[in-house]
């Protein structure tokens, strides 16, 4: 089973860093800045079923919030990445979520607040996180540096996408 998943988030929130250590990378990061996307692969096993997540790592831009809609088309799910040390990236994520939902409808997604290894420097406070949880979002606190929260993030999203497909 294959699923297309988009990685979304503001500029330099660590989307690429988050996935590079855990996926099959074939292309250099230059593609981000040339065509605005880099496709990578993450193989998982959910309840004994092999799932291949094709991760479309989209180039983030805080200022204009522009994403190519064509890249989102056909996605079975998406991941919103927030930089815990920059509060504005949470707002970007919220905007992106609305945009994507407007385009693709209510498809499974998960949010990861990155840089949990420097929690003391976080601008995103617990209240904001609680608010997200209250919305019913799948929220993960993780770190691209230590790898915390990454596997559960993919597993949870894969599981939700598979259940929705059934």
């Amino acid at each position: 089973m294959q699923k297309k998943v988009c990685m979304l988030g503001g500029f330099a929130v660590g989307k690429t860093s988050l996935v590079r250590r855990f996926v099959t990378s074939l292309f250099s990061e230059q593609y981000h800045t040339t065509i605005g996307v880099s496709v990578e692969k993450k193989a998982l096993s959910v309840d004994g079923e092999d799932v291949t997540l094709m991760l479309w790592d989209l180039y983030g831009d805080d200022e204009f919030q522009r994403i190519r809609e064509s890249y989102l088309r056909g996605s079975s799910g998406y991941i919103l990445v927030v930089d815990g040390t920059r509060k504005e990236t949470l707002a970007t994520a919220l905007t992106l979520q609305q945009t994507v939902e407007g385009l693709l409808g209510p498809i499974p997604f998960a949010v990861i607040v990155n840089k949990s290894d420097v929690r003391a420097e976080w601008e995103v406070d617990d209240a904001a996180l609680d608010e997200l949880r209250q919305r019913g979002w799948s929220l993960f606190l993780g770190s691209a540096k230590t790898g915390d929260g990454v596997e559960p993030l993919f597993l949870t999203l894969a599981d939700r996408m598979l259940r929705q497909a059934v």
Partner: peptide, 28 residues
């Protein structure tokens, strides 16, 4: 629509990179 690879064939002795990723990039 998804850019997912449905099937892939290669000639003998051709070095194949990860065809799933190549497929995604071609779609992109």
């Amino acid at each position: 629509e998804t850019g997912l690879l449905l099937h892939h064939v290669a000639a003998d002795s051709v070095a194949v990179q990860d065809q799933h990723v190549v497929s995604g990039m071609l779609a992109a």
